[in-house]
Nucleic acid binder design. Structure first.
Lengths: 239, 239
DNA sequence: ATGGGATTTTGGTATAGACCAGATGAAATG
DNA sequence: CATTTCATCTGGTCTATACCAAAATCCCAT
């Protein structure tokens, strides 16, 4: 669309990116404030901010509202085909995972869920909303729906750990097939709010439908990830 | 991060989104110019633009440089596990695909490629760069590397169609396994330039390593998609 | 040390204006 | 009719300023 040459904000972006790449600023560290960055060259704050937005889009830095801009930590690698919980694979990568259950309620199956689960409208379902963090930074919001007839009493358990292991050890539920849909999205409204990011931050929307060996839908999961927090890796045999 | 209530740009975003949802503006149509939108309410152009950026992030609208803002067409569904070419599945979804070969050259295997292909440094490789469009809009840029010893003379062929079918019909190459990495990214520099989008537009970076039945790497593919052009759908058996 | 309240700093939102370069379309030209 | 030329419209960049709300910090009283 344009040549990087004469555009000030692209120049500043490259300057800051170079300082980070050189290790002058390390992951988790705060950048100088916008007004300080501005002081250096005779440039307006809007231009500085445009440069910061570029780096944010590239996942190099992120912001904490009204606190400052920080250097991003590396993303975690996530394989949606592996039925290991978030807790295990984040820990396996040397990071500190945290899960918070925002809500867990029993609901009646509506039209959309009826179709997904092949269950009658009105059938009991559990609806769980969780927020998950890595090294203290909220990285994803998920909405999980589980067929209550397969896991009665599920929401009485502590779900701040691995839902996977609860389903397996308590209810003997094994997942045999996964259908995963992925779509780049923008984090807005509830998702942005819960992740405490500015509306419009790029994200990844991940929907997973889990089937047991009999082909029955056990769980439907909708996740919203910050764009800079993950890398998806799938290893598959071609059909 | 904030309540949508009192923020002007979120209000305007919702207004415009509602007009699109109501069918007042249809996919492909141009929105009124920023200065026209501004004329309506006593609001500055910067605020209008912030509202448009939100909608762009959500994939509702897109821009053509210095031409205007347009309503986005629906995304195409893409299954990286299916070894059908872009041309076929885009057409199957009732859209008009186009492939342009930007360059095709023979190169010597460098360190990174040597590792990926398990071939000696200096081994001959073909490097192909293509741009692909849907209904006249460029949606992805790809860089393909193919082991030249498996497909000698490949770049003499016309590659504006399906590379898949050339590999299969001319060289008898079948792909048995795919390793796919996906990562939200920002489209910048060459990618932004080639897709004619503003630097920093959200995108999806997709890397695919293709193995034949003997486990040898046949092809390495790096794709950069516009964020609003696709939805990835994978159906997998859990390991 | 600890807690609490005031102050400062930070990014977030919004305004108004200016100029530019590419896209567009109409008018002039062959 | 096709082509070129030119004025206009469009989004893209940049400046300068103002005010707000939340976060961070400091300082004082306990």
């Amino acid at each position: 669309m344009q040549q990087p040459d004469h555009l000030q904000y692209l120049g500043m972006r490259d300057d800051i990116a170079a300082r980070i790449a050189a290790g002058e600023l390390k992951p988790g560290e705060r950048l100088p404030s916008e007004r300080q960055l501005q002081a250096g060259g005779g440039v307006s704050r809007g231009t500085i901010r445009e440069a910061l937005f570029q780096l944010e889009g590239e996942g190099v830095i992120y912001r904490k509202d009204r606190s400052g801009w920080y250097v991003s930590p590396p993303p975690v690698v996530y394989d949606p085909t592996r039925w290991e919980g978030f807790m295990s694979y984040v820990e396996a990568q040397g990071r500190r995972p945290l899960t918070e259950t925002l809500s867990k309620v029993e609901i009646a199956c509506d039209g959309m869920l009826a179709q997904i689960f092949s269950r009658p409208v009105g059938a009991p379902m559990y609806w769980i909303r969780r927020r998950r963090s890595i090294d203290g930074r909220a990285v994803l919001i998920e909405s999980i729906v589980v067929d209550a007839s397969l896991a009665p009493g599920l929401i009485e358990h502590d779900l701040d750990g691995s839902l996977t292991s609860v389903l397996k050890t308590v209810y003997g539920i094994d997942v045999a097939r996964n259908k995963v849909d992925m779509r780049p999205c923008a984090l807005i409204r509830e998702e942005a709010e819960a992740l405490r990011v500015k509306s419009g931050l790029p994200g990844l929307n991940l929907e997973r439908t889990c089937y047991n060996a009999q082909g029955r839908v056990v769980e439907f999961d909708r996740e919203y990830w910050r764009h800079d927090a993950l890398k998806v890796s799938v290893d598959i045999r071609v059909r």
